[in-house]
């Protein structure tokens, strides 16, 4: 009989998560979200934005091609599995 241990663990985890969530709620962690967006950017000197170079463009195309290969392999396998696994 092991279910009670798992259920107890899940319940404790859920309770602790709720506790932290309400702590955050009461401490105003969900307020001022507009300022929070800028937190990583503060205290940094601004510099001109970089333009996409020719090399960068080639890399982007290469990356996109590799990504398409991966996506095609995954999609093929999933379609194949769904049509064959009966």
């Amino acid at each position: 009989m092991y279910f009670p241990y798992f259920i107890a663990y899940m319940a404790v985890g859920f309770a602790v998560s709720l506790g932290v969530f309400f702590w955050a709620l009461n401490r105003g962690q969900f307020k001022d979200q507009e300022r929070a967006r800028y937190l990583p950017l503060e205290q940094r000197a601004s510099a001109p934005a970089a333009k996409l170079t020719r090399k960068g463009r080639i890399e982007t195309v290469g990356l996109f091609a590799l990504a398409c290969c991966g996506l095609a392999a995954s999609a093929t396998a999933i379609v194949f599995a769904l049509t064959q696994a009966r």
Binding site: Q29, Q33, A36, R37, Y38, P40, L41, S46, A47, A49
Partner: peptide
């Protein structure tokens, strides 16, 4: 942390991230 700094853009939505 890194991508907003590298692109000098604020995070699209902090609420969404939470």
């Amino acid at each position: 942390y890194v991508l907003p700094i590298a692109t000098r853009s604020p995070l699209y939505s902090h609420t969404l991230s939470l």
